[in-house]
């Protein structure tokens, strides 16, 4: 029988989660190891974000379990198909986040706070992909970044890194 933990979101919703799933979070793993995780574990993460985090963790857990059980070389092919499935799942996950950037940023902060390196890296890559190949003005518009440079400052920066601003 799997050991379950109760996670409490900042808006007081309880999530019952298997230890193996939630231990991917270094923060929670430490709490469990230190014996600090008795009863409900209160987290500074909203229920909406936490649900998303757990969605990710469950998918990852599924993947690792598959690989551990896979002592038979003959299963390699199946594994490859599953890799395709994971790619598909990740693409869908990314598309949802790109469509709702607030969820994306909440998730970034949560993955940092919960110390989930794989999720953090996945999300950073996602943001990098959104930025890559875009002009500064497009990036500002996409993320509502306000340009607070004076024209002189802006000129100085472009002069400093002239090569990077050439096509």
């Amino acid at each position: 029988m799997a050991i379950m933990y109760a996670l409490k979101s900042s808006d007081n919703e309880i999530f019952e989660v298997e230890q193996k799933v939630i231990e991917q979070s270094e923060t929670i793993k430490k709490m469990i190891e230190d014996g600090a995780a008795t009863g409900e574990i209160p987290l500074q993460v909203s229920s909406k974000t936490l649900a998303k985090v757990l969605e990710w963790c469950k998918q990852r857990q599924h993947k690792t379990v598959e690989n551990e059980n896979d002592d038979n070389k003959g299963k390699r092919k199946k594994e490859r198909d599953e890799d395709d499935d994971i790619k598909e799942w990740e693409n869908k996950f990314s598309d949802e986040l790109k469509a709702d950037k607030d969820v994306l940023f909440d998730l970034l902060l949560a993955s940092n706070y919960l110390d989930l390196p794989a999720l953090l890296s996945f999300l950073c890559q996602l943001v990098a992909d959104m930025v890559a190949g875009k002009m500064p003005e497009e990036i500002r518009r996409m993320f509502n970044i306000e340009n607070d440079f004076t024209p002189e400052e802006e000129k100085a920066i472009t002069a400093e890194h002239g090569w990077a601003f050439q096509p």
Binding site: G133, P136, R140, N147, E154, I157, T158, H161, A164
Partner: peptide, 10 residues
């Protein structure tokens, strides 16, 4: 190159 370009954002 792309990383350096972000220095102009703000």
């Amino acid at each position: 190159k792309s990383a350096v370009q972000t220095s102009i954002l703000s």
